[in-house]
């Protein structure tokens, strides 16, 4: 900074660099400066009034500020207003959901779409963990958007499944547990052929015999199709409960589903348990109906 100022009258601040670069002093207008200083005063006010200081005392209490205001409290108040409004606005629909049967709800398009629209969050919280968003299914957990239902795809059957839960049950190595390794191979081939619509082929005749001998038909039906939905898979369709892979099918036949020995699951058995949601869901009497309608609407309800 030079001390020599050749331009004393042009309004520079006297700060001069490299001999000729200097700073001019053009102050902002008074009103601008006043509001600038007013800003500083407001900082003091804000600091005292609102919870500004990020320190806690020995009790773990934060500094609250003179107003005692908190953002969470304000949010809760606002949210309560919104929630009260919703409760009031949809009170009649909720009442209908509580008093009507699921089958009747399905007949009322407006109520049905209300049930579907209000289920998305509930499904995400309680169901999607296993069944994935939109009922897309996960390995080991059934797809809800298809039209294959082990326990029935009518809306009241879905409701019953939700209320009581379901526990899959398939004995290992046939009903008597006495199928030999070769018989298991044969019946696996037969089951795969059934799904491809080739159950009558001579090549799988041995497997077909095993299917009868092992009493598989007791649950899966004489033609591989259960007579009534009671948890047994339809073997003639192209949807597989666990996997369409031949080795995986063989494994299910060998070790069964939920097979226990001395109170413990045997190694290799498949687990298929749907918990009862009657106790798990809040406000279950309405929410189960809601979810039953929602699951039915995913794409495969009957």
């Amino acid at each position: 900074m030079a001390h020599h100022n050749p331009w004393p009258d042009e309004g520079n601040t006297g700060h001069i660099w490299d001999e000729d670069i200097r700073e001019l002093d053009n102050p902002p207008p008074l009103w601008w400066m006043l509001s600038f200083y007013a800003g500083f005063i407001m900082i003091v006010f804000y600091t005292l009034y609102y919870p500004t200081i990020p320190l806690t005392d020995e009790m773990g209490e934060y500094t609250q500020g003179m107003a005692g205001w908190t953002a969470v409290e304000e949010y809760n108040e606002d949210y309560k207003i919104l929630r009260d409004w919703r409760v009031a606005k949809f009170a009649d629909k909720e009442e209908k959901l509580a008093s009507m049967t699921v089958a009747d709800i399905m007949k009322d398009p407006e109520l049905k779409s209300y049930a579907v629209a209000t289920s998305k969050v509930l499904f995400g919280d309680y169901c999607a963990g296993c069944h994935a968003a939109g009922g897309a299914g996960n390995p080991g957990f059934p797809v809800l958007a298809d039209d294959d239902w082990l326990w029935g795809g009518k809306v009241n059957q879905i409701e019953a499944t939700l209320i009581n839960g379901r526990i899959g049950n398939m004995p290992a190595k046939g009903m008597m547990g006495n199928l030999s390794d070769q018989e298991i191979e044969d019946v696996t081939d037969y089951v795969v052929a059934l799904s491809e619509g080739k159950g009558g082929d001579a090549a799988v005749a041995a497997g077909k015999a095993v299917f009868a001998k092992g009493m598989c038909l007791a649950c899966h039906g004489p033609a591989g199709k259960p007579l009534a939905p009671a948890g047994a898979a339809n073997l003639t369709d192209q949807v597989w409960r666990f996997s369409s892979d031949r080795d995986a099918i063989k494994k299910v036949i060998t070790y069964g589903v939920n097979v226990k020995k001395n109170g413990e699951y045997i190694e290799g058995t498949r687990n298929a348990i749907m918990p009862a949601f009657n106790e798990r869901l809040p406000n279950a009497d309405v929410n189960i109906k809601r979810l039953a309608v929602y699951v039915h609407s995913l794409g495969g309800g009957q």
């Binding site: 994935a132 897309a136 797809v143 958007a145 298809d146 369709d237 192209q238 794409g299 495969g300």
Partner: peptide, 16 residues
């Protein structure tokens, strides 16, 4: 978006 497609029992694929 979820599921993008569904395998149906009759061997067809369903989209929504």
């Amino acid at each position: 978006r979820s599921p993008l497609f569904v395998q149906m029992s009759d061997g067809s694929i369903q989209n929504k």
